[in-house]
Design a protein around this nucleic acid. Structure first.
Lengths: 98, 98
DNA sequence: CTTCTTGTTCTAGTTTGATCGAACAAGTGA
DNA sequence: TCACTTGTTCGATCAAACTAGAACAAGAAG
């Protein structure tokens, strides 16, 4: 499929994270991942074209918020916990409370 | 000057808050207000034209993050603490840590 | 090998947002 | 009254982002 690259969290800025989470669609994706541990793209609660979804996932990945791994033709996504625990304290609570 | 309106926090969405904080300039403004209690617009640590600053302040105000009150020809801005304490838990930590 | 599924990339269109100059409104003070 | 300060609003410009169709790559399944 593709070699997914995940950024160093040192190099992710707060504005970038905020920007990534400023879209309702992407917030829904994060909340689904927080509830389900690991999900393929087609299992996410969105109603956009697959090209659009691919874009949204790349934005979240580049912001250091999710991890993506390949399994067959699918890619499985999960929350990048280290980002929330070590780099952006409070962000997890913020998403949970919404 | 003007009658500033502040939104009900019930009607502010998380994407709107995230969008408001997705700009480095606005994050700097919030951090300055968190440190100084109350500041006039011209005392904020920004280097943009006053029309631009006025826009940024309106974005923060509409997102429920700041309060603005008039005093003479100046307007004094402060953090809207109820938003952080009751509606967006974790957000204050997120801004402090950055 | 062929077909289906999954997801990416390219390209393009539309929308949103940041920026700033200019004009304006309102209070301050001489 | 007149000049100054502070901040808003309007209009325009430019960059960034959301959206999706079409073509493509790669594994899975028959």
């Amino acid at each position: 499929m593709k070699a997914y690259t995940h950024p160093d969290l040192d190099q992710v800025s707060l504005p970038q994270v905020m920007q990534a989470l400023s879209d309702p669609c992407r917030i829904s994706i994060m909340q689904a991942l927080m509830a389900e541990e690991e999900l393929a793209c087609n299992a996410l609660p969105v109603t956009v074209a697959k090209a659009t979804l691919s874009h949204h996932m790349a934005v979240l990945r580049d912001a250091g918020l999710i991890l993506t791994r390949v399994e067959g033709t699918k890619c499985l996504n999960s929350v990048r916990m280290e980002a929330f625990e070590d780099y952006f304290p409070g962000l997890l609570d913020l998403l949970k409370a919404a």
